[in-house]
């Protein structure tokens, strides 16, 4: 099995105009929502935000390659765009950002971008990176054993591939070939540490060979290239043809999070260079060349997006926090075969 397979078919050729423009809409929506989250943080209204800016191409691609509500997503914490496509609303994103009542991810318990939305099979994510990968293998194994045609997509950054969880997950995937797609958004920096100090091989996808699974590298800023790769990977998995490790090469043009300052570890010139390859710019160019987008249409999309963003912000800012008592609840579920000793007072 080769490490890097050339993509022979182009599923993107089958996308109709409406789908192409929908993808554009989600890219812009994710970007503008994300930018507003940064602003809310700088205004002191949001304690924290971790961004998906610059990663929208692969995120939108994977979202469109999946069957909504049927396939499973173990998200990367930057997967704002994917979550929006799979059914999380901008209002829900903002409620989570602010830790408000109605936060569907965790009811104010987790930091923002720790997505969880069961109706969309988006599984709760934690902060220790890569823990989700072997869990995703477990879900995929269960699908396989039950003969379901679900596919599991699991996202992460390249830094996380140094964790043992990654290697154990790929090892299992290589042994059992469950329907899973590993998607690495390689933005070249794990906070400040460059990928060259992260791994001894050139590509994350090179590692697939060691586990006898398919590895594919794609330009992570090229939406349609990402879509083709993701559709192929997802459908192969669905057909029982085994897992794929997709590596989307991209860049994070913003700091790691609102708590980071990237000026200490990379030049402004480097960042500016990459901004010229912004996935939204590239896609706009494509759509314009195909005659699907012009300045007027662009402004229209932006207007619609900003209405959604404004609505979400306005809504979330005016929502209450969850009652403090709720923080003590829900550690265990009801169970008729547990006898909680009366004298055992939980400190909560």
């Amino acid at each position: 099995m080769s490490v890097q397979e050339k993509v022979m078919t182009r599923p993107s050729d089958r996308l109709n105009e409406e789908q192409l423009l929908q993808m554009y809409y989600y890219m812009v929506l994710s970007r503008k929502l994300d930018e507003r989250m940064w602003i809310l943080n700088r205004q002191g209204k949001a304690p924290f935000h971790i961004s998906g800016i610059g990663h929208e191409a692969i995120q939108v691609a994977q979202g469109f390659a999946m069957r909504k509500g049927h396939d499973w997503l173990f998200p990367h914490y930057r997967d704002i765009a994917t979550c929006l496509i799979l059914g999380v609303t901008p209002r829900q994103m903002l409620l989570a950002l602010l830790g408000k009542e109605g936060d569907v991810f965790s009811r104010g318990r987790q930091m923002p971008e720790h997505f969880s939305y069961k109706p969309s099979k988006i599984v709760t994510v934690s902060s220790p990176v890569m823990t989700q990968a072997p869990q995703a293998v477990g879900v995929a194994l269960a699908s396989q054993l039950q003969g379901k045609d679900e596919v599991v997509v699991v996202g992460f950054g390249e830094g996380a591939t140094s964790e043992g969880d990654f290697h154990e997950a790929l090892n299992w995937a290589g042994i059992y070939h469950p329907p899973i797609v590993f998607v690495c958004q390689n933005n070249q920096y794990a906070i400040s540490v460059h990928v060259k100090k992260q791994m001894p091989v050139e590509n994350v996808a090179d590692r697939a060979a060691a586990y006898n699974i398919r590895g594919v590298i794609v330009d992570g800023n090229d939406l349609l290239a990402c879509y083709d790769v993701m559709v192929e990977a997802v459908e192969r998995a669905r057909r029982g043809e085994g897992p794929t490790l997709v590596e989307a090469k991209t860049y994070r043009p913003v700091p790691h999070s609102t708590a980071d300052d990237d000026r200490s570890y990379r030049s402004r010139e480097e960042v500016e260079q990459w901004k010229k390859r912004d996935p939204i710019l590239l896609y706009e160019k494509y759509l314009m060349e195909r005659g699907l987008l012009d300045e007027e249409k662009k402004a229209e999309v932006l207007k619609q997006v900003m209405q959604e963003v404004d609505d979400a912000v306005d809504f979330a800012l005016h929502q209450p926090y969850p009652p403090v008592e709720s923080a003590a609840e829900g550690v265990f579920g009801d169970f008729h075969l547990v006898k909680w000793p009366k004298a055992f007072k939980r400190n909560a």
Partner: peptide, 21 residues
């Protein structure tokens, strides 16, 4: 019979618990 890997014995088990097992 699993690989000799405790981390994923638990993690894969967790995943299976999410999906019907």
């Amino acid at each position: 019979d699993t690989p000799l890997a405790e981390l994923s014995i638990v993690a894969v088990g967790l995943g299976m618990a999410l999906n019907g097992y």
